[in-house]
């Protein structure tokens, strides 16, 4: 069923279609020569952001909040995450001075969770951006030109995908090291084939559309075809898959740092805080739960945002 003027048609399939098709026809000028010219004015197509639901906006709010906290952690009145707080010796459990309590080294957990988001978010976004930068153009070209170039790249991507990613990451850590930059590179190496495949598949789908053929017949150059007719549909889907990818990258970073293979103490990351928390249970429940809930809230939200956006854009493209 087509979506008409952006408003979803609530109604049955099948015989109804006939009625709908006519409904799109405009009444003509009374027997006039002008043939199209619908007389009544119709609502314009809905914007992409209409009707995504409150859940989407809540999730977007949570994601934005974390991003803002990570960006401005220095400017906000958080305690220094790396220094020992004297007030912790008196009371390590959550209190007015330390909302989430202190860890075993007497540091404020709240500020460590906030500062710890920096590593997770930077690694998450940077690694996916890097993967998109590599996988995106390659996927676009492979999907548009197909042929030998496509086959070669697909084989390379499949080889990368066939390695168990954790083993691959551990091996690369051993070579590169475990700074923030290194971890970003490592996750990008694991993630680019996925984005390459998404972009390639979307490109193949859109490059076969009749309007692409029509544009080529009009004399559009290949860059013009890609830029004007293919990219506008590929970019949104690449971005929405990218958002889901960010969540996966953060989980991966968390996993690595849980294993002690990522950015290590004293720099806080959600992963190494969770690792520390598991060792000190049950006395310091907050030490485990706080970073875990932080990570969970961010990943759930960004996944939800990506998923809603993807569904919305798929519907629009089906139009």
């Amino acid at each position: 069923m087509k979506e008409l003027y952006g408003a979803p048609v609530s109604g049955p399939e099948g015989p109804f279609e006939m009625a709908v098709i006519t409904a799109t026809r405009a009444p003509s000028h009374l027997g006039g020569e002008m043939v199209a010219a619908p007389v009544e004015s119709r609502p314009r197509a809905r914007r992409w952001y209409h009707g995504l639901g409150w859940g989407f906006w809540l999730a977007t709010g949570i994601v934005s909040l974390w991003i803002l906290l990570a960006l401005f952690a220095n400017l906000l009145p958080f305690q220094n995450p790396d220094t020992l707080q004297s007030s912790c010796f008196l009371n390590a459990s959550p209190s007015a001075a330390h909302l989430l309590g202190c860890d075993q080294d007497g540091r404020d957990i709240l500020s460590r969770v906030v500062f710890g988001s920096r590593v997770s978010l930077v690694v998450g976004f940077a690694s996916i951006a890097l993967s998109l930068l590599v996988g995106g153009p390659l996927g676009l070209l492979a999907g548009y030109f197909r042929g030998g170039f496509d086959e070669l790249l697909s084989i390379v991507a499949n080889v990368f995908l066939s390695f168990p990613s954790l083993v691959l990451a551990l091996v690369v850590v051993a070579f590169l090291g475990n700074s923030e930059f290194d971890i970003t590179i490592i996750i990008a190496i694991v993630a680019w084939p996925l984005l390459f495949r998404v972009v390639r598949a979307t490109t193949i789908e859109y490059a076969q559309r009749d309007y692409v053929l029509a544009a080529r017949a009009l004399g559009a150059t290949t860059p013009q075809v890609l830029w004007r007719y293919v990219l506008p549909d590929v970019v949104p889907s690449a971005i929405t898959y990218g958002l889901v990818g960010v969540a996966l990258a953060i989980v991966a970073e968390g996993g690595l740092s849980f294993l002690g293979q990522s950015v290590g103490p004293p720099i806080p990351t959600w992963g190494n805080m969770i690792a520390a928390g598991t060792e000190s249970m049950p006395q310091y429940q907050s030490l485990l739960l706080s970073p875990a809930i932080a990570m969970f809230s961010f990943i759930l939200s960004i996944n939800y945002v990506g998923d809603r956006l993807r569904r919305r854009l798929d519907l629009r493209s089906a139009l």
Partner: peptide, 17 residues
């Protein structure tokens, strides 16, 4: 082709028969 620019130019193809 008997179409009036002011009426049709801002619409998108799927609004037409």
């Amino acid at each position: 082709v008997s179409l009036d620019y002011d009426d049709v130019s801002w619409r998108r193809p799927y609004e037409f028969s």
